[in-house]
Design a protein around this nucleic acid. Structure first.
Length: 153
DNA sequence: GCCAACGTTGGC
DNA sequence: GCCAACGTTGGC
Protein backbone atom coordinates (compact mmCIF):
# COMPACT_ATOMS: atom_id res chain seq x y z
CA UNK A 1 0.00 0.00 0.00
CA UNK A 2 1.44 3.31 -1.12
CA UNK A 3 0.24 6.88 -1.26
CA UNK A 4 0.59 9.34 -4.09
CA UNK A 5 -0.07 12.91 -5.08
CA UNK A 6 -1.20 13.33 -8.68
CA UNK A 7 -1.44 16.70 -10.39
CA UNK A 8 -4.12 17.55 -12.90
CA UNK A 9 -5.03 20.82 -14.51
CA UNK A 10 -8.66 21.29 -13.48
CA UNK A 11 -9.47 22.79 -16.90
CA UNK A 12 -8.40 19.42 -18.25
CA UNK A 13 -9.68 16.98 -15.61
CA UNK A 14 -10.89 18.25 -12.24
CA UNK A 15 -11.92 16.24 -9.20
CA UNK A 16 -15.53 16.99 -10.15
CA UNK A 17 -14.95 15.72 -13.68
CA UNK A 18 -13.58 12.51 -12.22
CA UNK A 19 -16.51 12.16 -9.78
CA UNK A 20 -18.89 12.65 -12.69
CA UNK A 21 -17.18 10.05 -14.88
CA UNK A 22 -18.54 6.50 -15.19
CA UNK A 23 -17.61 4.61 -12.04
CA UNK A 24 -15.93 7.85 -10.86
CA UNK A 25 -12.94 6.63 -12.79
CA UNK A 26 -10.66 8.33 -15.32
CA UNK A 27 -7.63 7.10 -17.23
CA UNK A 28 -4.66 9.24 -16.20
CA UNK A 29 -3.62 10.18 -19.73
CA UNK A 30 -0.87 12.50 -20.80
CA UNK A 31 2.01 11.77 -18.45
CA UNK A 32 5.14 12.32 -20.55
CA UNK A 33 7.82 12.20 -17.92
CA UNK A 34 9.78 9.03 -17.35
CA UNK A 35 9.97 9.29 -13.59
CA UNK A 36 6.24 9.81 -13.25
CA UNK A 37 5.61 7.00 -15.72
CA UNK A 38 7.83 4.68 -13.72
CA UNK A 39 5.85 5.36 -10.57
CA UNK A 40 2.68 4.28 -12.34
CA UNK A 41 4.27 1.34 -14.12
CA UNK A 42 6.48 -0.05 -11.37
CA UNK A 43 5.16 1.02 -8.02
CA UNK A 44 1.45 1.71 -8.09
CA UNK A 45 -0.96 -0.95 -6.93
CA UNK A 46 -4.71 -1.10 -7.08
CA UNK A 47 -6.10 0.52 -3.94
CA UNK A 48 -3.20 2.90 -3.35
CA UNK A 49 -4.31 6.25 -1.94
CA UNK A 50 -4.19 9.30 -4.20
CA UNK A 51 -4.35 12.99 -3.37
CA UNK A 52 -6.00 14.73 -6.31
CA UNK A 53 -4.16 18.00 -6.85
CA UNK A 54 -5.32 20.89 -9.00
CA UNK A 55 -2.37 22.60 -10.66
CA UNK A 56 -1.96 25.53 -12.98
CA UNK A 57 -4.78 27.78 -11.86
CA UNK A 58 -4.64 30.86 -9.69
CA UNK A 59 -5.00 28.79 -6.51
CA UNK A 60 -3.35 25.38 -6.80
CA UNK A 61 -3.98 22.78 -4.10
CA UNK A 62 -5.37 19.44 -3.04
CA UNK A 63 -9.02 19.09 -4.03
CA UNK A 64 -9.91 15.50 -3.29
CA UNK A 65 -9.03 11.94 -2.49
CA UNK A 66 -8.91 9.10 -4.98
CA UNK A 67 -7.44 5.66 -5.36
CA UNK A 68 -5.50 3.74 -7.95
CA UNK A 69 -8.05 1.64 -9.81
CA UNK A 70 -5.98 -0.41 -12.26
CA UNK A 71 -2.51 -1.63 -12.93
CA UNK A 72 -0.52 0.16 -15.60
CA UNK A 73 -1.36 -0.16 -19.30
CA UNK A 74 -0.34 1.77 -22.42
CA UNK A 75 -1.66 5.32 -22.69
CA UNK A 76 -3.78 5.27 -25.87
CA UNK A 77 -3.27 8.99 -26.52
CA UNK A 78 0.37 8.39 -27.49
CA UNK A 79 -0.83 6.66 -30.68
CA UNK A 80 -3.52 9.20 -31.58
CA UNK A 81 -2.20 11.81 -34.04
CA UNK A 82 -5.06 14.15 -33.16
CA UNK A 83 -4.19 14.13 -29.47
CA UNK A 84 -2.00 16.77 -27.93
CA UNK A 85 -0.27 13.88 -26.20
CA UNK A 86 0.59 12.13 -29.47
CA UNK A 87 4.11 10.73 -29.50
CA UNK A 88 5.23 9.80 -33.03
CA UNK A 89 8.25 7.99 -31.63
CA UNK A 90 6.21 5.50 -29.68
CA UNK A 91 5.19 2.26 -31.37
CA UNK A 92 2.32 0.00 -30.32
CA UNK A 93 4.69 -2.99 -30.16
CA UNK A 94 6.81 -1.06 -27.71
CA UNK A 95 4.69 1.58 -26.00
CA UNK A 96 6.66 4.31 -24.32
CA UNK A 97 3.96 5.76 -22.06
CA UNK A 98 1.85 3.98 -19.50
CA UNK A 99 -1.01 5.06 -17.29
CA UNK A 100 -3.31 3.82 -14.56
CA UNK A 101 -6.99 4.37 -13.95
CA UNK A 102 -7.80 6.65 -11.02
CA UNK A 103 -11.08 6.41 -9.12
CA UNK A 104 -12.22 9.59 -7.37
CA UNK A 105 -13.60 8.94 -3.88
CA UNK A 106 -14.58 12.38 -2.57
CA UNK A 107 -13.86 16.05 -2.58
CA UNK A 108 -11.98 17.32 0.43
CA UNK A 109 -11.84 20.71 2.03
CA UNK A 110 -9.58 22.56 -0.38
CA UNK A 111 -5.99 22.52 0.86
CA UNK A 112 -4.24 25.30 -1.01
CA UNK A 113 -0.55 25.18 -1.75
CA UNK A 114 -0.16 28.14 0.59
CA UNK A 115 -1.78 26.26 3.45
CA UNK A 116 0.44 23.27 2.80
CA UNK A 117 3.52 25.48 2.83
CA UNK A 118 2.44 26.99 6.14
CA UNK A 119 2.35 23.59 7.82
CA UNK A 120 5.76 22.77 9.36
CA UNK A 121 5.14 19.02 9.41
CA UNK A 122 4.70 19.00 5.65
CA UNK A 123 7.85 20.95 4.82
CA UNK A 124 9.69 17.95 3.43
CA UNK A 125 6.90 16.86 1.10
CA UNK A 126 8.30 16.35 -2.39
CA UNK A 127 5.56 18.57 -3.75
CA UNK A 128 6.85 21.51 -1.75
CA UNK A 129 10.49 21.12 -2.67
CA UNK A 130 11.90 23.99 -4.64
CA UNK A 131 11.86 23.41 -8.36
CA UNK A 132 9.85 20.22 -8.20
CA UNK A 133 7.78 19.78 -11.34
CA UNK A 134 6.97 16.10 -11.11
CA UNK A 135 3.28 15.52 -11.79
CA UNK A 136 3.22 12.36 -9.68
CA UNK A 137 5.01 12.15 -6.35
CA UNK A 138 4.99 9.54 -3.60
CA UNK A 139 3.52 10.63 -0.28
CA UNK A 140 4.67 9.15 3.02
CA UNK A 141 2.08 7.57 5.28
CA UNK A 142 2.91 10.20 7.91
CA UNK A 143 2.16 13.00 5.44
CA UNK A 144 -0.94 11.18 4.28
CA UNK A 145 -2.32 11.05 7.81
CA UNK A 146 -1.59 14.73 8.41
CA UNK A 147 -3.23 15.70 5.15
CA UNK A 148 -6.32 13.59 5.79
CA UNK A 149 -6.68 15.20 9.20
CA UNK A 150 -6.22 18.68 7.72
CA UNK A 151 -8.74 17.96 5.00
CA UNK A 152 -11.32 16.86 7.57
CA UNK A 153 -10.79 19.83 9.85
C1' DG B 1 3.18 37.06 -18.97
C1' DC B 2 7.43 36.07 -16.58
C1' DC B 3 10.85 33.15 -15.20
C1' DA B 4 13.23 29.50 -12.38
C1' DA B 5 13.97 24.86 -12.57
C1' DC B 6 14.32 20.91 -14.81
C1' DG B 7 14.01 17.33 -18.65
C1' DT B 8 15.08 16.09 -23.37
C1' DT B 9 17.40 16.34 -27.71
C1' DG B 10 21.05 16.10 -30.73
C1' DG B 11 25.67 17.53 -32.39
C1' DC B 12 30.19 16.46 -31.47
C1' DG C 1 29.41 10.78 -22.70
C1' DC C 2 29.33 15.83 -22.60
C1' DC C 3 26.83 19.88 -22.89
C1' DA C 4 24.41 23.72 -25.26
C1' DA C 5 20.05 24.67 -26.93
C1' DC C 6 15.52 24.17 -26.55
C1' DG C 7 10.95 22.94 -24.61
C1' DT C 8 7.89 22.35 -20.67
C1' DT C 9 6.04 22.82 -16.09
C1' DG C 10 3.90 25.43 -12.90
C1' DG C 11 3.99 29.02 -9.26
C1' DC C 12 3.63 33.77 -8.95
Amino acid sequence: MHYWLMKSEPEDVSIDDALAAPNHTVAWTGVRNYQARNFMRDAMQVGDGVLFYHSGGSNPGIAGVAEVASTAYPDPTQFDPSSKYYDPKSRPEEPRWMLVDVKALRRTRYLSLGELRDHPDLADMLLLKRGNRLSITPVTSAHWRILCKLAAS
